[in-house]
């Protein structure tokens, strides 16, 4: 090679043909919002199949039922975006739901009990996340241990029996309505909006995505990857605990058996919502819609009077179809 330098005009940086064309744009919109379209189609189907579906009362019930899973699923979204997984959310929710009841039964101020219980979830999450991040243990295993261990702890705390005595004010949070809108629904929407803002407009949110996309590149760009992972687990634990406390509030008892299988519902919603299990892509908007979608399917079955066994089978099938559709549309955009 000779020593060279360039002279003359530099290649224009922007490629030929900047415009994307109408077809391209519509297609990318469809890819982006396909879940919303499927959801709307399902709602239309529901309205046709059952006249009760579009009833405001039914819709408000839907919101009531799906919000608790939804809150946990939003937390799960953070964790999955970093390419990790949290299997312990059901147990963490149960633990927090139990401690809040025990604290109150012991005479503690109910708001303090509320806050403390959520904090317990936050701490449980950060301990598991921290173990996984700083000792490079797979989060699947650490949180599986958490799932078993924390559930056991919940049984120990309560001697395996339910704890009663939830005051009315707290019960209102769990089952009350403002006009036609359930309070838990508002909390779910609030949590989603705040999370969306955090993920899209803060540097922390950006770092969550970079950590999930390529942890090594993120580290070499100055991202404290371990800290980011730990924080997402703390968020997930905190939101799981919030969900658990709200369930106790709704049932007005703390039950050690509460929230079993919550982790699966949450993971299903996150993945159905288009967040990649490999991390780095997706977001809470998809999770939000997916949570409703799963609830609507269940609701349609109830309205049609079909049993829960059918529901389980069909939910499974729909999950697969939705995933395939997602993948298909995505590949279309690529090749």
């Amino acid at each position: 090679m000779t020593q060279v330098s360039t002279q003359g005009a530099v290649t224009p940086p922007v490629g030929r043909g900047e415009s994307r064309g109408f077809r391209g744009r519509t297609r990318s919109l469809i890819v982006r919002f396909n879940l919303l379209l499927i959801f709307l189609a399902l709602c239309a189907l529901g309205a046709i199949l059952s006249p009760n579906f579009a009833n405001p009362n039914n819709i408000s019930n839907l919101l009531q039922q799906s919000s608790l899973v939804g809150i946990a699923a939003i937390g799960m979204t953070f964790v999955i975006l970093t390419a990790n997984i949290d299997l312990s959310v059901g147990s963490v929710a149960a633990l927090a739901g139990m401690t809040v009841a025990i604290f109150i039964a012991g005479g503690m101020n109910m708001w303090l009990a509320f806050a403390l219980s959520v904090a317990i979830g936050l701490i449980a999450g950060s301990v598991m996340g921290g173990l996984s991040a700083y000792f490079t243990l797979p989060s699947f295993m650490v949180t599986l241990a958490g799932l078993v261990g924390i559930r056991g702890l919940t049984y120990l705390l309560s001697d395996g029996t339910p704890v009663t005595g939830i005051p009315d004010q707290l019960a209102y949070l769990g089952s009350g309505r403002i006009g036609p809108v359930p309070v838990v629904g508002l909390i779910f929407i609030g949590v989603t909006v705040i999370s969306a803002l955090v993920l899209n407009f803060t540097v922390f949110g950006e770092h969550v995505y970079s950590t999930g996309s390529n942890p090594e590149a993120a580290r070499l760009s100055g991202v404290n990857v371990k800290k980011i992972i730990t924080i997402t687990f703390a968020i997930c634990g905190g939101l799981a605990a919030l969900s658990g406390v709200l369930l106790t509030a709704r049932l007005t008892v703390g039950q050690p058996t509460a929230n079993e299988g919550l982790e699966l519902d949450a993971i299903a919603a996150v993945v159905l919502g288009g967040t990649s299990l490999f991390g780095g892509s997706g977001g809470v908007f998809g999770t939000f819609i997916a949570v409703f979608m799963l609830a609507v399917i269940r609701n349609i079955f109830n309205l049609m009077g079909l049993g829960s066994f059918y529901q389980m089978v069909v939910t499974g099938v729909i999950l697969i179809i939705a995933l395939l559709l997602n993948r298909l549309l995505e590949n279309r955009g690529k090749r």
Partner: peptide, 15 residues
């Protein structure tokens, strides 16, 4: 080590 290939040029540049 250098890139998040599934993210945008903008996101990579400002990281």
């Amino acid at each position: 080590q250098g890139l998040m290939i599934n993210r945008s040029v903008w996101n990579n540049l400002i990281e």
